[in-house]
Design a protein around this nucleic acid. Structure first.
Length: 322
DNA sequence: CCAAGTCAAGTCAGA
DNA sequence: TCTGACTTGACTTGG
């Protein structure tokens, strides 16, 4: 028996004017003559993004959702080269605390997934420095919310630069240079073009990083003869130091032509096939739904799963599978 | 007012 | 060596 919890990403299809990812382009920033005013505008946008984040958490509470990924675009231009002196956290402290207070009263698993500009396989300082800066921002936001940063930030392995082995070793080298708190914040995901489950496991085992298995990515990209089921126990093992349940990403291909793109909803039979293979191997598993229809995809999947006789729906957008 | 083009950032394939 | 695709929601600009 396994308890499965569903989560969704960053925004809701049911809330109006509630984007947590409002932004200002750097081109626009430059057109504002008064730099102080421009920065204040950035700060207003950031506060509004956090406010919308809190609304999303309340929406989650109201709908029994207890697993959620924050937008990584909460603070526009946070790591931009030409704003090195901007202390963006200071004006946000009170808002972060508000979110933290809410989370304390209403426990939810929350995390981040910065996009592909975070690259730890590079040997170039101009790539590594912004990468570390971005990771540090995520760490600071979590701290500001009073959320334990341990295993809260999923990243991809990075680029291969024509030499996958070398890139993996470079990742190990770079990872070793990170502050301990940031190391412990990281989870690694197998990607759909370059670093397979097998490659990612190599890093996770070597560096004690939990592996977030992306089943869709695996289907889109795996090595000749590579079979995820043979590696499943190893994936579980990467989570042994974690207080949080094993985490996965779930999405369905849009169609054959655009196989790697995310569909609007999750195909329940594909999901069920997967769960049938792993049920019993872990007590709890958290599945982050990556679908165009966001929270609506979660609600639909929960409904679809309820149709299976071996499934019993629980509170908290969870279900038990016998 | 709506639609199309653009946006900080990286990597990779292909010309 | 350089350009466009990749992918994405929101912003920005053009009609």
């Amino acid at each position: 028996m396994t308890v499965v919890r569903l989560g969704y990403v960053a925004m809701s299809m049911n809330l109006q004017n509630c984007s947590p990812s409002q932004t200002m382009t750097f081109a626009k920033f430059k057109t504002i003559k008064d730099r102080e005013a421009a920065i204040q505008k950035l700060e207003r946008i950031s506060v509004s993004n956090l406010e919308n984040c809190l609304r999303l958490l309340k929406h989650n509470k109201g709908n029994g959702v207890t697993f959620f990924r924050f937008s990584s675009k909460l603070i526009p231009l946070a790591n931009h080269d030409e704003l090195p002196d901007w202390n963006y956290i200071k004006p946000l402290k009170w808002k972060l605390k508000e979110i933290g207070d809410f989370l304390e009263k209403n426990p939810m698993r929350v995390d981040f997934h910065p996009d592909h500009f975070v690259v730890l396989t590079s040997s170039k300082p101009e790539i590594i420095n912004p990468t570390v800066k971005t990771l540090r921002m995520h760490y600071t936001l979590l701290k500001g919310m009073g959320v334990n940063p341990e295993y809260r930030c999923v990243i991809h392995v990075g680029g291969a630069y024509d030499d996958k082995e070398q890139a993996l070793e470079q990742f190990i080298h770079n990872f070793g240079l990170l502050p301990r708190g940031i190391q412990q914040m990281i989870m690694l995901e197998n990607d759909d073009t370059t670093f397979s489950l097998h490659n990612t496991l190599y890093l996770c085992e070597k560096l004690s990083i939990p592996l977030v298995f992306d089943y869709h990515h695996y289907l889109a990209h795996h090595e000749e003869g590579e079979n995820w089921e043979e590696h499943w126990e190893r994936v579980i093992e990467t989570w042994r130091h974690s207080n949080l349940p094993l985490k996965m990403h779930i999405s369905s291909p849009r169609d054959e032509a655009e196989y790697r793109a995310h569909a609007d909803y999750i195909d329940p039979s594909m999901f069920m096939d997967f769960l049938t293979k792993i049920k019993g191997s872990v007590d709890h598993i958290d599945c982050m739904i990556e679908a165009k229809q966001k929270d609506n995809a979660l609600f639909k999947l929960l409904k679809d799963m309820a149709q299976y006789p071996e499934v019993e729906v629980l509170s908290g957008a969870r279900f038990k599978i016998k």
